[in-house]
Amino acid sequence: MLAADQRPPLYQLVSAARPGISREALGEEVARLKALVVEVLGPLATGVLLDPLHGGLALDRLPRQAGLLLTLEDHRFRETPEGFRLSRPIPRWGVGSAARVGADGVKLLIWYRPDAPEEVRRHQLDLVRRVGQACNRWGQAFILEVLPYPLPGEDKPPALWEEMLRDFADPGLGVDLYKLPYVPGMPSRFSQVLPAPWVLLSGGRDARSFLLALEEALASGARGFLAGRAFWLEALSAYPDWASVREGLEASRSVMKQAVELLAALSPEEVA
């Protein structure tokens, strides 16, 4: 599956290429980039993940065979004074909204640290549970993305994945599919502990390192991928040269084809 719901990385890309661009024009350019990504790479995907803020143009390019996934989370999360993150939905948007516009499923990103204060962890888990309940009511597939994050002064988040798995392995959360990063030594644990299948995200990896991570993840029980930047970020770096962006995306089809071939090589029992 192809992820094209990213917002801050594209805001930064467009703003760097066009200093002083207005907020309205910024949104329009991000929407055009997403539409081009879906036009060129979408035909290789079984599903495409978009956001409701800038994904409208891309909907017109959505291949007939691809399922539509829509993201729920606002990229502007809240923070406590200590730097712990509190996720929230996009304002005036939710599972019902996604269902009414024809989505097949929704994705929620949860920033999470198991060492956060109890009220922060409870806020995050309660949000997941509410989304799971809403997906059950609306008949939507629920894809949960869980990512750790560093606090101010930290170079990277601590390796607390075992504790994170403990908190998110509750079947009562209603998760149908987990979207997770490559973590050395953890792919097999994801497959053993989680109550639903999981797929690999690219997490900003370049094409080569993503394909290596995907190969290991699939061998360890992952059921596929839901990735974006490994396929399209290098091509989009040519913006605002639209001809070069398209040329780069056409070239990156070979990377996505390799990812699809890795998945196709699995036996039917491994992906059932």
Rank of each mutant, 00 (worst) to 15 (best):
L50Y: 03
A31E: 04
Y239F: 12
A227P: 07
D176W: 13
E119K: 03
G139A: 15
A58P: 01
L201Q: 10
L70E: 13
P9V: 03
K107C: 06
G83S: 13
W232C: 00
V271Y: 10
E28N: 03
V101P: 15
L263R: 06
E82C: 10
G96Q: 13
E216N: 02
L218T: 03
S191D: 02
D5T: 04
V48F: 05
E119P: 03
L2H: 04
A230M: 06
L44Y: 06
P8K: 08
V131D: 01
P195Q: 14
P184I: 01
R121H: 10
A265N: 09
H123Q: 13
V255M: 04
D206Q: 11
E145G: 03
L62Y: 07
D155C: 12
L173S: 12
L151F: 12
M186F: 00
P63M: 11
R223F: 02
G139M: 15
V193Y: 12
E215M: 02
V199D: 09
V271L: 15
R100F: 14
R208W: 14
W93F: 11
V193F: 07
D74S: 07
D206F: 02
P117D: 05
P195A: 13
W232N: 00
H75R: 11
S252C: 02
L249P: 01
L49N: 00
G139Q: 14
Y178N: 11
I90K: 09
L212E: 09
A227E: 03
L212C: 11
E82I: 06
L263G: 01
R129H: 14
S244I: 06
A25H: 06
R92P: 06
L127W: 05
P8D: 01
R64Y: 13
G56L: 09
L151H: 08
R121W: 13
P8H: 04
A243M: 06
S252H: 04
M164W: 04
W198H: 10
F77A: 08
L180A: 03
R100Y: 14
Y112A: 11
L36A: 02
L160M: 08
L49M: 09
P89M: 03
A3T: 05
F142T: 06
R122L: 07
H75T: 11
E29H: 08
A251S: 12
P91C: 03
G47A: 14
A103L: 12
R92N: 08
L236H: 09
D60R: 15
W242D: 05
L173G: 10
G56F: 06
P195H: 09
G221Q: 05
G228Y: 01
V260E: 07
E162D: 15
L194Y: 10
W93V: 10
I110D: 02
A35G: 07
V271K: 11
Q192E: 14
G20Q: 04
P117V: 09
S22W: 15
E73T: 00
F168A: 04
P181V: 09
R100L: 15
